[in-house]
Design a protein around this nucleic acid. Structure first.
Length: 562
RNA sequence: UGUCCCAUGGUGUAAUGGUAACACAGCAGAUUUUGAUUCUGUCAUUCUAGGUUCGAGCCCUAGUGGGACAACCA
C-alpha cells in the first residue's frame, strides 16, 4: 500500500495522527478499529470508513482491529457478522488478529460499572424510561435529578448485583452514571450505562440479562484494545465528553484513546441508512441486500464494481467534517476507470436484428481473430465466427438517418468490428412495419488486419455483430438508479419511497453473446463493446447465461440527441 | 431562547499567514476499426461585516446560513 506521500496533502485526521506520532503520544502507536454493529449489511458509506481506518493503519505503520459492537442482542445476528467479514476481506483489507466483539468484554465492563458504583459515580434508578426521559428535559432547560440519585453505595451495589442476577424484569431498573443533570450536553445528564434485557445474545447466549449501553461500552472497548484513534461519524461529536469521562474515571494509565469525528458519506440518488435499506429488503422492493441496485457492498459487488474501484472512490471523495453529497457519477467514473484497464472486450447484442450479406457464400464460416483488449496484448485474443447471417444492434440501423448518424442506413457503409466493411442495400419489414432483415453486401478486400489497401479504408462508423448461427442466448439485466430524486430522503413531507424509480430494472431476455462466453462464471466481467461493462450474475448457468450491466459506456451520441 | 460542529466553482477535496489548485460533472476540439479510451482547450470558487497583519480562504470578534444533541439504539 501507498506510504503517506509527502507531496500529497494530508486530510485532517492524517494531520492529527502525524502530530500525535511526532509528539510521542501513546508511545507513537497508531491503532484504529472498524466497529460495525452486526445488525445489517455494509454499504458504501461503511466502505468509506473501512478504507479510512484500515488505510490509516497502513499509512502510519499501525494496526486496525475489526470489532463487532454487539451490545444490543435484540437486533444483532450472526448472519450479519458473516457478511461483514466477507465484505471487508473482499474490499482487500485484513484486520489485526482475530475479530473482536464488545461482548468479549462484558465481564470487564461489569467490573468497571461496579467500580463506578463504589466510587459513588453511578446509581441504580428505579424509574421508567418515560420518567427518566422527562426529567432530562430539553437542551435549553435544566434537568431534574432522580429521587434515586443519592442511594448509598451499598444499596446501589446490591441492586446492581440483583439486576445482573435476573431478579428484575426488562426496564424495571437501570444503572446510570452520576454526572450532571444541568449539563448543556444532554449526554452528560446522568446517562444510562446498563439496562436489563432478557434476550439471548448471539454469542453470550443467556449468560447476561443486563447489557451495557454504547457510550459506556464503546470507549472502554477501545481502551481495552489499545486503540489510539477512534474514528467515528459526526453525530457522535456530542458524545465525546462522555467518552472521555468514562476513560478518565475508570483508568489510571497515561494511555488515552482519542475520538475523532468525520462526515459520513452521502450519495446522490440513493439512501444510505440501514433502516431504509432494511425496509427496501423487507418490503421486497429490491431482491435482497445484494440486489445490484443497492448501495450495499454486496450489491455493488454483484453489480460488477471491483474492490479497486471502491477504494479509488473512497480515496477521491476525501475526508472532512463538512456535510457532503457525492454525485453518483463519481462512483461510476471510478468503475469505468478501473474496468477500462481490466475488462476483456467481447461482443453482445442486446436488441438483435438480422443482417444478411447477399454476396457472402452460403455456408462459409470465417474465424475472425479479435484481441480481448486493444491496448493490452497480455489479455490475448479469441476467434469470432463470421457468417452470411449476422445479428446487429437494432439501434445501429436507421431509416432516413441524419448525416451525423455513423451507422447503417440504406446506401451507407460501416465497418463490422474486426471483420469487413459492409454496405447496406435494403431492408425487409414485417407486417407491423418493423425491420426484420437488413440486406448488405460486403467487400472481400476489406477484411480487418489483411493489410490490403482496401482494409485500411476509413469509414465513419464501426459496429459490433454476431453470427446468427453461432451466438449464444443470454439474459441481460440493465440497472438504473433506484431513485429518481437526487435526495430521496431529503424531503420533509414526502416519504423517500415516493421517489422510487419504476424503471430501475430492465430485463432483456432475448440477447445474444459470442460463443467465447460459453463458460463464464459469476463475477466474471467484460466490456461488451460499445454497450458498457457487464458481469456475470450469480443466477447465471451454463444453460441460461445472465449478465448485469455494471455501468454503461459514456455515450456522446446519446447525449447529443437529448 | 442552550452546547457543540461546519461554511472554498454545479459536486467534492486541497492550499497549514505569501500567485486560490486538483478531480468529477459541463462545454468545445483532435485522435480513434468501441460515438469508448486517450489527448488538448474551456467555463466556474473563498457566506457577510468588522478587526489583527506589510500581507488573511487561513488568525480574532460579531452576524448569517446549515447540521448534530433531548432511545433503556449504535
Amino acid at each position: 500500500m501507498a506510504e503517506v506521500n509527502e507531496e500529497k496533502s494530508l486530510n485532517f485526521i492524517q494531520q492529527i495522527i502525524k502530530d500525535d506520532k511526532k509528539n510521542g503520544k501513546n508511545e507513537s502507536r497508531v491503532h484504529t478499529r472498524f466497529p460495525p454493529e452486526p445488525n445489517g449489511y455494509l454499504h458504501i458509506g461503511h466502505a468509506k470508513s473501512i478504507c479510512l481506518n484500515f488505510g490509516l493503519a497502513q499509512q502510519f505503520d499501525g494496526k486496525c482491529n475489526l470489532r463487532f459492537d454487539d451490545t444490543n442482542p435484540s437486533k444483532e445476528e450472526t448472519e450479519y457478522v458473516d457478511s461483514i467479514m466477507e465484505d471487508i476481506k473482499w474490499l482487500g483489507f485484513e484486520w489485526e488478529g482475530d475479530p473482536h466483539y464488545t461482548s468479549d468484554y462484558f465481564d470487564q465492563l461489569f467490573e468497571w460499572a461496579v467500580k463506578l458504583i463504589k466510587d459513588g459515580k453511578a446509581y441504580v434508578d428505579d424509574q421508567s424510561a418515560e420518567l427518566i426521559s422527562e426529567q432530562k428535559k430539553s437542551p435549553t432547560e435544566e434537568g431534574i435529578e432522580s429521587p434515586y440519585r443519592n442511594r448509598s453505595v451499598e444499596e446501589n451495589y446490591d441492586l446492581f448485583l440483583r439486576m445482573k442476577n435476573g431478579e428484575f424484569k426488562d426496564g424495571e431498573k437501570v444503572l446510570r452514571a452520576k454526572i450532571d443533570m444541568n449539563s448543556p450536553n444532554m449526554h452528560m445528564r446522568d446517562p444510562i450505562i446498563y439496562r436489563i434485557m432478557n434476550a439471548e445474545h448471539h454469542r453470550t447466549g443467556n449468560k447476561w440479562c443486563i447489557y451495557p449501553m454504547y457510550d459506556f461500552a464503546h470507549g472502554e472497548s477501545d481502551y481495552l484494545e489499545g486503540i489510539t484513534h477512534s474514528i467515528c461519524t459526526l453525530e457522535f461529536e456530542v458524545h465525546r465528553p462522555l467518552y472521555n469521562w468514562f476513560v478518565e474515571n475508570l483508568t489510571d494509565t497515561e494511555y488515552r484513546p482519542r475520538q475523532i469525528e468525520f462526515a459520513r458519506l452521502n450519495l446522490s440518488y440513493t439512501v444510505m441508512s440501514k433502516r431504509k435499506l432494511l425496509e427496501l429488503v423487507e418490503g421486497n422492493i429490491v431482491s435482497g441486500w445484494d440486489d445490484p441496485r443497492m448501495p450495499t457492498v454486496s450489491g455493488l459487488r454483484r453489480r460488477g464494481y471491483t474492490p479497486d474501484s471502491i477504494r479509488m472512490f473512497a480515496d477521491k471523495i476525501g475526508v472532512a467534517k463538512r456535510e457532503n453529497v457525492i454525485d453518483v457519477s463519481l462512483l461510476e467514473y471510478c468503475v469505468r476507470e478501473d474496468l477500462n484497464n481490466k475488462a476483456p472486450r467481447a461482443m453482445a447484442i442486446l436488441d438483435p436484428v438480422k443482417v444478411v450479406i447477399d454476396n457472402y457464400p452460403e455456408d462459409k464460416v470465417e474465424m475472425m481473430n479479435i484481441a480481448y483488449h486493444q491496448k493490452d496484448e497480455s489479455m490475448g485474443s479469441r476467434e469470432v465466427p463470421f457468417t452470411k447471417e449476422l445479428y446487429i444492434e437494432r439501434s445501429d440501423y436507421m431509416e432516413d438517418a441524419p448525416k451525423k448518424f455513423f451507422r447503417l442506413s440504406e446506401g451507407r457503409e460501416v465497418r463490422f468490428r474486426g471483420a469487413y466493411i459492409l454496405k447496406c442495400e435494403s431492408v425487409e419489414k414485417d407486417a407491423d412495419g418493423n425491420i426484420s432483415v437488413i440486406h448488405c453486401t460486403y467487400d472481400e478486400e476489406t477484411r480487418s488486419g489483411s493489410g490490403s489497401e482496401a482494409s485500411k479504408r476509413k469509414v465513419k462508423g464501426t459496429i459490433h455483430w454476431l453470427s446468427a448461427s453461432h451466438s449464444l442466448d443470454a439474459e441481460v439485466r440493465l440497472y438504473d438508479r433506484l431513485f429518481s430524486d437526487p435526495a430521496p430522503d431529503g424531503h420533509k413531507d414526502v416519504d423517500y419511497k415516493e421517489f422510487l424509480n419504476s424503471e430501475s430494472l430492465e430485463i432483456l431476455s432475448n440477447c445474444k453473446v459470442e460463443p467465447a462466453l460459453a463458460n463464464v462464471k459469476p463475477l466474471d466481467f467484460f466490456q461488451f463493446v460499445r454497450m458498457g461493462y457487464f458481469n456475470v450474475d450469480k443466477d447465471s448457468t451454463k444453460e441460461k447465461l445472465v449478465f448485469n450491466r455494471t455501468v454503461s459506456l459514456k455515450d456522446s451520441w446519446a447525449k447529443m440527441n437529448k
